[in-house]
């Protein structure tokens, strides 16, 4: 009895380790996911103050309870779907990326998904949905389509941001 119980516990533990919780969100028709542990909060439509002379994809800054947080238009950052379909009531995902708190504008936030770690596959060689694979951590089949897990660390790489900016500025 006790053994069974212990065994249960172990499997629980294992399951927990393997189980990953993702916050799913969409941009256009594409589904994306981000590790729930990175998500600090999700807000809707805060007043955004634009920052002149900043890269195109930086929408501006918001005041999040006294902290000034840059907001990135993820669609632009990822060069997704050229069409300007951004709805007015966008969501802002506030993520803590290596203690750099940044907001990302997404079209909608869907739900929290639980997936097994081992179901995540490495990014395919070919570009998914016109997305350079350097920003993709992995792809996961969630039944109703593919879920792209984004690598926000590389999305926020400062060097690259600067580089982008200087290219744009030139």
């Amino acid at each position: 009895m006790a053994d069974t119980f212990a065994a249960d516990k172990v499997t629980d533990q294992e399951e927990k380790e393997q189980l990953m919780q993702l916050v799913g969100f969409t941009i256009g028709n594409e589904q994306f996911g981000v590790d729930i542990l990175m998500v600090q909060e999700i807000i809707r439509s805060a007043p955004i103050t634009s920052v002149p002379n900043s890269p195109d994809f930086i929408e501006g800054v918001i005041n999040l309870r006294g902290n000034i947080i840059p907001v990135i238009e993820l669609r632009k950052r990822l060069n997704l779907f050229r069409e300007e379909t951004a709805s007015k009531d966008a969501w802002i995902l506030i993520l803590d990326i290596n203690s750099r708190v940044t907001g990302f504008i997404v079209d909608s936030v869907t739900r929290v998904l639980k997936i097994m770690e081992n179901t995540i596959e490495p990014p395919p060689e070919v570009v998914v949905a016109g997305l350079a694979n350097q920003y993709i951590r992995g792809v996961c089949d969630i039944g109703e389509g593919l879920l792209i897990m984004l690598d926000f660390n590389s999305i926020l790489l400062a060097d690259e941001l600067k580089q982008l900016k200087s290219i744009e500025g030139a």
Binding site: V51, N53, S54, P55, P70, T102, A158, L161, K162, K165
Partner: peptide, 10 residues
């Protein structure tokens, strides 16, 4: 403070 990428050369 502003994020560094907003501060540099802005």
């Amino acid at each position: 403070p502003l994020a560094d990428y907003l501060r540099v050369e802005s």
